[in-house]
């Protein structure tokens, strides 16, 4: 069963026809060629597929593309790239918090949403905030330090 869908991704509108059973994750990667969003478990466990839906992090592998119709989607491509990294991305690089990088797009989006709603989280809040983003490489310490550093830097600016 194919359905007409309008997806709003990173401020742009895309019209396409998609099978009802296709996930937002697969449509982003395969139809829109936005391959920054990664597929890990496909079951809501790992967070590699995290995107923001109306500003909130969700697992795009658990969202049907038809169900995302009309919502504001932000993927890693909408956050920053080679022509200018976002503060969270800068901090992850500075702290050596990126190894293989597979979890990184999800971590960046989750951390961005956390800091947008709570600009100065405690370490415990950062750890809880990132509990849905599994990383097999870094051991998390550097990721947590990077997010706390973004918070401190914005405190100095406040």
């Amino acid at each position: 069963m194919k359905l007409p869908i309008t997806l709003k991704v990173n401020g742009e509108s895309y019209r396409l026809d998609a099978e009802a059973k296709r996930t937002l994750l697969d449509v982003l990667r395969e139809d829109l060629a936005l391959t920054g969003t990664k597929k890990g478990c496909g079951a809501g466990e790992c967070g590699a597929c995290t995107v923001l839906m109306d500003g909130k992090p969700v697992n795009s592998c658990l969202v049907l593309a038809v169900d995302a119709s009309g919502r504001e989607i932000t993927t890693i491509e909408g956050v920053g790239g080679l022509d200018g990294l976002s503060p969270v991305q800068e901090a992850l690089v500075d702290h050596g918090a990126v190894q293989c990088g597979y979890c990184t797009p999800g971590v960046v989006l989750t951390a961005k949403a956390l800091l947008d709603s709570n600009p100065h989280p405690t370490e415990a809040e950062v750890r809880e905030g990132l509990s849905g983003n599994l990383c097999r490489c870094t051991g998390y310490v550097k990721i947590v330090e990077a997010v706390l550093a973004v918070s401190r830097a914005s405190e100095r600016r406040d």
Partner: peptide, 9 residues
Amino acid sequence: LGTPQIRNL
């Protein structure tokens, strides 16, 4: 319950 991403859905 779950993770922040799961709680949003």
